[in-house]
Amino acid sequence: MLDLTNPAHIVGAVLIFLGLAVLLISAIGLYRLPDLYLRASAVGTSAGLGVALIVVGALLIDFTWPNLIKAIIAVIAQLLTSAVGSMAIARSGYLHDSPPAAITSPDELRDTRRDDVEV
C-alpha cells in the first residue's frame, strides 16, 4: 500500500510519474520526428528508460529482496531488448529502402551501395 509518510514510497511515486512523463514525451516524439531512424534512436531507448523508472519506482514502494532481484533483471532486460530492437528496426528499414529524412547529411552508408537505385 502506498504510504505517503514513508520517504521510500514518496520517492517511488515520483519515479513512477517521471517514468510516465518520459513515456509520454517519447510518444510525442513519435509524431514530431521526421523519419524511422530518428524515431528509433530517440524514442526506442527513451521508452526503455521510462519503463526502467517505473520498475524502480514500483520496487521502492514494495521493497523485498526477491523483488530487488526481479527489478534488476527487468531493467537490464528492458534496456538490452530496447537497444537490440531499435537496431533491428533501423537496419531492416535501411535494407528495405526506407529513406532517411532529407536533412540527413552526410549519409555515408548510402555511399556503400553498389547500385544506383533512386530511393
Partner: peptide, 28 residues
C-alpha cells in the same frame, strides 16, 4: 559497443562491418 551506442538516445548503430572495422552510426 553497438548496443551501448544504440542505447544512448540520439545515436543509433545501423550496421557495422568487422572486415573494414567500421560502425555505421546514425546521429540525431
Amino acid at each position: 559497443i553497438s548496443s551501448l551506442v544504440t542505447l544512448t538516445p540520439g545515436t543509433l548503430t545501423i550496421t557495422y562491418s568487422r572486415d573494414h572495422a567500421v560502425l555505421y552510426v546514425h546521429g540525431m
